[in-house]
Amino acid sequence: MIRLEGVTKVYDGGIVAARDVDLDIRKGAFVFLVGPSGSGKSTLIRLCLREERLTKGVIWVAGKDISTLPNWKIPYLRRSVGTVFQDFKLLPSKTVGENVAFALEVIGRPRAVARRQVQQVLELVGLSTKADRYPHQLSGGEQQRVSIARAFVNRPPILLADEPTGNLDPATSVGIMRLLDRINRTGTTVMMATHDHAIVDAMQRRVVQLDRGRVVRDQRESGYEGNLDSTIEGKA
């Protein structure tokens, strides 16, 4: 689903945010990106969305080599990748339902289809009764559910999440993780950057640890700090 080969990213100021990163993420996988602040987690996510161009290497997303993707095809890449961020990115002037529907409207889905899909996804995230509320009338956890609903309403094969629980308390975070887990169980590939030890430890999924742009650990079914008994993901 996602494959990085020798990926290097040097920002304009000369900062190397990714250094020769190799990563192979299969369809249906759930992967945590961990590492200290500034280690390059967000950079990898932005590279996969072509929000940044990579300096060297190749990135495959959903079967396409996106390092050479022409600009006009980028919208199609993004339609196959749902995104969730720490700051929710909801439009304050639109209701919950409208925020989710927006993602379908702007890619030209017919209204009737959109309405049905929005209804379904709001049920999935447990907000079907709050479709007419505005973001400021919701808790942080609920706002993040809306943003997940928007990312998933189009049923993309891939979901990228950059610290989706970064602004939430532990109890709320658990709810969000349950939701992401459910989405992952539908076959969606999930890659999530996080600092949250408790979550990573509890989930016991594949963990890719970065340090100054390098992959320093890649373990299957691991906690945040790594388990002695888990295997290095070599071939998989």
């Binding site: 919208p75 993004r78 995104t83 990115k89 702007v106 890619i107 928007r150």
Partner: peptide, 16 residues
């Protein structure tokens, strides 16, 4: 903000 979200969810360049 809106334009940013439109790009994120894959709105076509001309649509924006």
């Amino acid at each position: 903000e809106e334009v940013g979200i439109m790009k994120l969810v894959g709105a076509g360049n001309w649509f924006i």
